[in-house]
Simulated assay, not measured.
Amino acid sequence: MYQALRPSRSEFVPVRNLSYHVRLWGQPSDKRPPLVLVHGWMDVAASWQFVVDAMEEDRFIIAPDWRGFGLTDGGGVDNYWLADYLADLEWLLDHYAGEGPDGEGARQIDLVGHSMGGNVAMHYAGVRPQRIRRLVNLEGFGMPARKPDEAPARYGQWIDELKRLHRGEMALAGYSAVDGVARRLMKTNPRLTPDKAAWLASHWSVNHAQPDGSERWQILGEAAHKIVNAHIFRVDETLALYSRITAPLLMVEASDDSLHGWWKNRYTLDEFHERLKSVGNARIERLEDAGHMLHHDQPRIVARMIEEFLAA
C-alpha cells in the first residue's frame, strides 16, 4: 500500500448545523496564505494526499470532505445543491482565515478545486472575489447549456429520482472486501496504480460489519448525490460569476478529453474555453498522459503546476 510522506491530521468544524471533517497538513504561517483544496463528486479530501506529498514547500493546507462525502455528515437530506457548497466553503474560510463583512478584511487564501470542486471554486471566486488570491481549477468544466423549455422535464426527472431514492433503488454499491473497492477505483481510472488504489480505498470506504461477522465495505458518499439537480444549468449565470473573478486563474485540463467522453458534441472544450473568456486573467494548461483524475495520474506534475502558479 502507498505510504503517505506527509500524513494529514483530522479535525471537525461546525458548519451550518453539520460537523464538517477537514484534513490538515502543515501549520498556519504569516508568510503564506492558507492553501485550500476541494475535491470533486464522489471523492474525499484524502484524495489530495498524492499531490501534497509531491509538493516541495511545506505549507498550511486545508482540505474538507464536502457535505455527504467522506466523514462529513449529510444532514439527512435527500438531494444536494451547489449553493450549499458555496456557503459551506464560506463558513470554513471564516474559521481558518478570519471573518469579516462579506469576507472583507479576512485573510486571502489560495483555492484549488478538482471537477465538481473546481466548479464550486470558480463560482465562489465570483461571489467573494476579495477572498481569493490565486485560483486553480483542475478539470472543472461546468455543465452543457440548457434551454428553458427543458425545465418541465427536468423537474419531473428530479421528482422521479427522489422517489427512486426513497424506495432504496439508488443505493451505492457495497463490497465484500476493501480490495473490491480498490479494483473499482482502478476500473474507473486505468492509470491508478494498485498501491495508490489500496490506499484510497481505505479512505474512500468504511467497513460495516454484518451480523454474521462478514465484511461489507461501503463507499463514503450519500446516494442522494446521485439525484439530478432540479434546476437547469444557466450559462448566463455562470458567465456573470466568471466575470467577477479577480484572482489569476490557472485552468488545467487532462489530455484525455473528459468532456467528449461525457457529452460527445453536446458540450466541448471549445465551448468551455469560450466561457473562460469572461474571466479577466485566465491561463489554460494541458497535462499529458492524464485523465479526469489527473491529481492521481500525475501528482508530481500537478503539484509543480500549482506551486509554480502560486509563487508567480
Rank of each mutant, 00 (worst) to 15 (best):
R304H: 11
D30I: 10
L162K: 12
F69A: 08
W263D: 07
L192G: 06
V127E: 08
Y85K: 04
S47Y: 09
E308H: 14
A230I: 14
K163C: 09
K264H: 15
A83Y: 15
G75I: 02
E150H: 08
H208R: 13
G291H: 06
S176W: 05
G26N: 04
D94Y: 12
Y85P: 09
R9E: 13
M55A: 02
S10K: 11
V77F: 03
L24N: 05
V181S: 01
M251H: 15
I284A: 03
Q49M: 05
M116S: 07
Q298H: 07
F12R: 06
S115E: 00
D110P: 15
E271T: 14
A311Y: 14
M293Q: 14
R304A: 13
D149N: 11
A197N: 06
V279D: 07
L135E: 03
G168C: 03
E237C: 07
A282W: 10
M170D: 04
H166F: 06
Q130R: 09
H21C: 00
P7G: 06
I159P: 10
R286Q: 13
W91E: 15
G103C: 00
P211C: 01
I284Q: 06
A173N: 12
M1N: 12
R266P: 11
R286D: 10
P14F: 07
P28H: 04
I227S: 02
L276V: 07
V22K: 04
H231W: 15
K147V: 11
D65I: 02
D179H: 12
A303V: 06
M42W: 13
R167P: 11
A303I: 04
N281Q: 13
I227R: 04
R300M: 09
I245L: 00
L294S: 09
E237L: 10
S243A: 13
D94C: 07
Q210R: 08
N207I: 04
F50S: 10
V127R: 11
A247G: 07
P148K: 03
Y2N: 04
L71F: 14
W158A: 03
Y85L: 00
W204F: 11
D65N: 03
G98L: 00
H292K: 04
F12C: 03
M186S: 05
Q130H: 12
D195F: 08
V252Q: 00
G291V: 03
R286W: 14
D65S: 05
L239P: 13
W91D: 15
M143I: 08
P33I: 01
E169Q: 09
E307A: 08
T238P: 12
Q27G: 09
P148C: 01
P14V: 01
H208D: 12
V302A: 00
